[in-house]
Write a protein that binds this DNA or RNA. Sequence first.
DNA 1: ATGTCAAGTTTGTCTAGGACATATTAATAA
DNA 2: TTATTAATATGTCCTAGACAAACTTGACAT
Lengths: 300, 300
Amino acid sequence: MGVNMLNIGAVERETGIGKDTLRVWERRYGFPVPVRDEREDRLYPEEQVDCLRLIKRLIDMGLRPVKVVGQTYPALVALLEDAVGRHPDDQPELQKYVQLIKGHQASELRLALSRALLDQGMTEYLSKTVAPLGHLIGESWLRGDIRVFEEHLYSEQVTLVLRSAIEMMRNDRGTPHVLLATLPGEEHMLGLLMVEATLSLQGARCTMLGGQSPINEIVAAAIAHQADVVALSFSAVMTPLQIKDGLQQLRRVLPQRILIWAGGTGVARRRSQDEGVQLIGSLSDLINAAAEWTKNESPT
Amino acid sequence: MGVNMLNIGAVERETGIGKDTLRVWERRYGFPVPVRDEREDRLYPEEQVDCLRLIKRLIDMGLRPVKVVGQTYPALVALLEDAVGRHPDDQPELQKYVQLIKGHQASELRLALSRALLDQGMTEYLSKTVAPLGHLIGESWLRGDIRVFEEHLYSEQVTLVLRSAIEMMRNDRGTPHVLLATLPGEEHMLGLLMVEATLSLQGARCTMLGGQSPINEIVAAAIAHQADVVALSFSAVMTPLQIKDGLQQLRRVLPQRILIWAGGTGVARRRSQDEGVQLIGSLSDLINAAAEWTKNESPT
DNA sequence: ATGTCAAGTTTGTCTAGGACATATTAATAA
DNA sequence: TTATTAATATGTCCTAGACAAACTTGACAT
């Protein structure tokens, strides 16, 4: 039986769903239904936390809470079969990576990833291998075929491969000078690394500030490094409202001459334009933006 | 004037202080005193957020809220002068690194760090250079001499140096097999990397699971990798209660034969023993623990 | 079919003030 | 001095209500 119970704070940490949200879901949808300890504090059984993890991922994919929050575990699995689409072997050439991941063969995986990079070239590698593989792994996680730590293992190896490639292209005199960062709350760094790889290839000078950078730090760094552009990446874990607030804050404080480029899946769903922020929907958008910048600024 | 206001959620993200805590501080200590928008929601002026960042760091250092939360910015600066001690040039040989950091010379910094590693050897390097330098930088941050993004730049370079050294020592047949991770909420990875370096040097086999790993993932990974030990690192950002809960949870779910080692500054202040968890107070403790394991298990 | 706008619904996050277990400090006894 | 105990200090949890922004729906026009 589920002897293992988490309090609401631990559930927030484990699932990424806020305490307020957990409570309001309970009120509205009747789920989760935690038991209570002697102090009337909520204690969430493990099974419900497992459901919540699934639910979080489904909502991040764009499903609405009303569709998913009340559902049982099997129903959730059925839902994601729908959402994910039924093509587990859509790209058979990606399956070899999945096999290596599931075998926990880190160094073999890195070797295969490095070889693919040299075979395809960076642009094709990112769009045909890294990005689809990321999706595939995310979907496999939903399906229960892959664990989080295996996903971790994959992103670790991709990071190593991309980093060493970027290192080879490093160019301290390139233009534009792009500062890369994510805002507080956003931990997903792989998107940022893909941006760095793409821009480095275009001859840009990239400075990786890192993840979870407070806004005033981004501003200070952009000024200190005399950056031309600040590039931010958003995954689906940040809500549209958080993204909007963050971008507005940053735009207000950052000197006007420094551009803001915002990309990632969290931004792709955005409809409303943000004043003074350029939305980057894809890697080709990114290449265009860099080319655009060079065209406008090079006569200076 | 402070045109830039953050709502309570943004302040939580930027400072790491929870919403509940922010509200209760306001009630108890009369600080922070946010203004309100038309909906009566709290809006925190930038200056107060700056204070809160200082306060968070001071509390993480061990000061008590009642001493720091009510104070003005100058008073806080005075307090930290006390807390930090007045030895900014305590170890003059570390100053050269600080200079490189403040000059944003990433590659020169990496070079200097690599050279020091080869000069001192790993154990001395960690205890005489990396750890003290980390403290020095933390203190310099408090003093306002160094920005967060510069701290970031440093940890990035140390990470690179340590990783490549660890890679050289990788040994898939070593014992014990140690799985390294941090619990959700804990982002500080440098401590974990120092652990990995130390253990690799002792001939252990290390698997870096990564940061913020949910407990069930740690368990799944430990079993899948057939680990002998799970090593966790805690900085001061996690409260003693969170650490205790997390360790208990993990101990309950993890097979008994797998040891738990817990280290880091968050653990060093711990007094109460946790059942079935070995507290590692220093790097030499770690070496002892590894030796101890080998002595007990090798006859098997 | 496709696009646009308004009305309706959903959803996350905010509010208040109270409560209590645990961590830490102060006071007392050995 | 050291061990116990009492007293604070502190973070996290509780309930229940509110509202703006995001999203869906449906009507209407292109």
